[in-house]
Write a protein that binds this DNA or RNA. Structure first.
Length: 475
RNA sequence: UGAGGCGUAGCGCAGUUGGUAGCGCGUAUGGUUCGGGACCAUAAGGUCGUGGGUUCAAAUCCCGUCGCCUCAACCA
């Protein structure tokens, strides 16, 4: 990149956010584009973020009684078409295998865009008695949706995700599961990704195809737009009836189960990038950062520098820090920029001056502050700084978001609000016409219902409001 | 699908009256450097997307074709 440095190359974050996003994703070496349009190759650094997300989520799923399993990639079209609303919603974006073994298939196979149907068909075999319930299963998998326009991590043809699929004996229990997992997602987003989220129910228009009710968590990106970062669905008996998932209850009566499903995807990496990134590149919170601290030797050829760096690296590694020492022969300035672009939370600069003084210079990626610390208790210092970065990033994101939530009483105010990059709370009468009108005139959509808030009148038609809704432009 | 644009070195691009293929970055080698994207020297690297036509001669003009991008449209 030479003299045109990264900061100059990427567009001003406030003015041209989407372009900034694309540049950051590609230039930090998170992904390459795949050979098929809309697919991507996730490079090791990007995948390491995903692995950390996986491990944190998996802990939480296990703690709430779920087990992992794996279901097939290919789903017979006949399975797929059993739930009317579901097939209608997904049909336009399903990729279908028509040939195999050199011959045309009698029945085409859908490449899973989501797995409710295959889970449904298996659950109908596995579930016979009330004693078999509940079934709490999660799957880590790839899925494919043939989207017309794509953007790395946010909307790709193929993506990685987890999908939980549970079956219960009662409506209450299935709904409780749906809400519990929404809570798990929220806690994870805030404590691991340092992204504050708003959770709530989605409107009919925005709900999942085949669900009775959909709940989402919405995160605000730095440009004020919203990103749906995860969803949970209460499916009622829709899929149970389509796939004949019945059990014999205590009272001797055959009953349909109630199911839920919930998922988050590699889109979370996109959320991280856009919620925390700045003009220098990524800022990754320590909990999910592939590299939590990087050591940059200064004047590496001087006697004792590399030895000391290695000593510190080993010490930090032993203390459980994901640490790397950059011994490549690029200049220190180059390395500073490179690792900042990759969002590494802490940078430790170690040169002859520091070593002589028994100190190290530590740079915080989130605040851009450089401070001198003693080498004698460096492991404790780094661990406590990592904790501070994690906490401060969430707090900063929360302040940023809260300052950009406004109220609107009219369509005009709503438009002004979203144009200013805000989440806008407004009353809504509940009719589809008003919802469509808002989208047509402001490009904003209903993200979630604002819980516990009661507006007087609809911002569009002025009639009695049924709900208070958070509107925003969304990715 | 409607409209517009672009295919020339790994990447970004320049290349008009048609006449031996260029620049920047990156890469390789050697040297001086190293506390915020260092510098000097040398070198490697291209059937100009593709098929045909016009011409003594085509990256350049003409016709076809393939691919990609932007906007629109579509999009849980």
């Amino acid at each position: 990149m030479g003299k045109e440095n990264f900061v100059e190359q990427i567009a001003d974050i406030e003015k041209d956010f989407p372009q900034w996003y694309t540049d950051v994703v590609v230039k930090t070496g998170l992904v390459d584009y795949g050979p098929v349009k809309g697919t991507m190759v996730i490079r090791p650094y990007g995948y390491a973020i995903w692995e950390n997300i996986q491990s944190e989520l998996d802990k939480r799923f296990k703690a709430t009684g779920h087990k992992n399993a794996y279901f097939p990639l290919l789903i017979p079209m006949s399975y797929f078409t059993k739930e009317a609303e579901h097939v209608e919603g997904f049909a336009p974006e399903v990729a279908v295998v028509t040939h195999a073994g050199g011959e045309e298939l009698a029945e085409p196979l859908a490449i899973r865009p989501t797995s409710e149907t295959i889970f449904g068909s298996m659950y109908s075999k596995w579930i016979q008695s009330y004693r078999d319930l509940p079934v709490l299963i999660n799957q880590w998998a790839n899925v494919m949706r043939w989207e017309k326009t794509t953007r790395p991590f946010l909307r790709t043809s193929e993506f990685l995700w987890q999908e939980g699929h549970t079956a219960h004996s009662s409506e209450e229990e299935a709904m409780e599961e749906t809400m519990k997992m929404l809570g798990v997602y929220k806690e994870f987003a805030e404590n691991c990704l340092a992204i504050p989220v708003i959770t709530g129910r989605k409107t009919e228009k925005e709900k999942f195809a085949g669900a009775v009710a959909t709940f989402g968590m919405e995160a605000m990106m730095k440009d004020g737009k919203s990103l749906q970062a995860g969803t949970t669905h209460y499916l009622g008996q829709n899929f149970a009836k389509a796939f004949e998932v019945k059990y014999l209850d205590k009272d001797g009566v055959q009953k349909y189960v109630y199911t839920s499903s919930w998922g988050v995807s590699t889109r979370l990496i996109g959320a991280l990038i856009m919620a925390h990134g700045d003009s220098r590149g990524l800022v990754i919170p320590p909990v999910v950062a592939p590299v939590q601290a990087v050591i940059i030797p200064i004047a590496a050829k001087k006697a004792g520098v590399l030895e000391k760096c290695e000593e510190v690296r080993a010490l930090l590694e032993k203390a459980g820090v994901r640490v790397e020492c950059d011994t490549t022969d690029a200049s220190p300035g180059w390395k500073f920029n490179e690792w900042e672009m990759k969002g590494v939370p802490l940078r430790i600069e170690l040169g002859p001056r520091d070593i002589e003084a028994g100190k190290a210079l530590i740079f915080r990626r989130d605040t851009l502050e450089k401070t001198e610390y003693s080498l004698s208790d460096i492991a404790e210092t780094v661990k406590s700084l990592l904790g501070a970065v994690q906490k401060d990033m969430l707090e900063a994101a929360r302040v940023r978001r809260d300052s950009r939530i406004v109220y609107a009483d009219s369509l005009k105010e709503l438009l002004g609000g979203v144009e200013g990059g805000n989440f806008v709370k407004a009353g809504w009468c509940g009719c589809r016409e008003c919802e469509d009108k808002i989208k047509a005139e402001t490009a904003a959509t209903a993200r979630v219902f604002a819980e516990g808030e009661h507006s007087e009148k609809c911002a569009v038609c002025g009639k009695q409001a049924k709900h208070t809704v958070i509107f925003a432009r969304a990715y």
